[in-house]
Design a protein around this nucleic acid. Sequence first.
DNA 1: CCTATCCCGACCGCGCTGGTAGGATTAGCG
DNA 2: CGCTAATCCTACCAGCGCGGTCGGGATAGG
Lengths: 165, 165
Amino acid sequence: MFFTTKAEYGVRLLIELGRQGQDHPVSLKAIADAENLPLAYLERIVALLKRAELVESTRGAHGGYRLARGPQDISMDEVVLALEGSLAPMECFVDDRSDDGRVLCSHHDDSGRGCATKLLWTRVQVGVLKTLAQTTLAELIDFQGRQVPRVDDAAAPRPRAPAPA
Amino acid sequence: MFFTTKAEYGVRLLIELGRQGQDHPVSLKAIADAENLPLAYLERIVALLKRAELVESTRGAHGGYRLARGPQDISMDEVVLALEGSLAPMECFVDDRSDDGRVLCSHHDDSGRGCATKLLWTRVQVGVLKTLAQTTLAELIDFQGRQVPRVDDAAAPRPRAPAPA
DNA sequence: CCTATCCCGACCGCGCTGGTAGGATTAGCG
DNA sequence: CGCTAATCCTACCAGCGCGGTCGGGATAGG
């Protein structure tokens, strides 16, 4: 499993916020009901999004949350990073918090030569980060709008058997 | 964490086998010593590789393991798939074992509309699978050979501040 | 003041990961 | 014919992180 439900729920939450528009705050209760998610758990998740300045909150009665920016300005790398902490593909990767979600392998040398898996995990990580960065919240909201359930709606470069049953 | 140590150890194991050449079998003990890994645990890992027909074994004294094919014919998607089971980015993705490691989301509909995160996770998964498929064992072995420790040796498209301290 | 909401910290069961233990089987070698 | 080096197999176990709950505090509208 790459990601935990934190990422899943968090993204669902953002989508729900995006659907509602940014004029009025939406209560967590409403989102929890709509998406059928545990409210108490959502509270902890939305806290992560707030710390990352992806959502803003209004306290008190009729309060709630709203997106801090337009959905087209929210890319998924920020979101997933905020929710999951870091995106290390492997345990030995250690966060250097330079600017983006890059992390580095801490095995510089066991037994003289460096660890060869570094190349592999780095490639994977860069790939994932790039994929996430290229997907915006707006896309997901839009996707959910159309959604006549269809596989291969993603980036599915599979020129294969075109004839279904 | 994307991957567990099974993937890490398994890949290291294959690299070690690749370095030794395919003429004589290499004992797990030797690999465990060279890579400083727990032997008993390696046994369970190599069993996965054997089931996937990535390595072959010779029993008895002076036995051991060797690669089932040349390192340039072993791509990492096969390897990681064999070691980790499936590559589902999210829990709701369920293995359909069609031909490659693709898996599908099982939430076809909650509350009418389909789940919007599907687009995101599918993209990530396809990306990872592609990255893995494009990396061969031979590359990793070769990479370890050169290895003057260097970040940005992977696919690092970051034209940024060129001047370090 | 009451209530809806955000906020925060403590707690907890469960499953999986990483690792161990112990033994059975197989094959080269003296 | 045993000894020993190796693969093989199954059961076991501790620790930890995930997913989730609980209780209560702060805050603001009616």
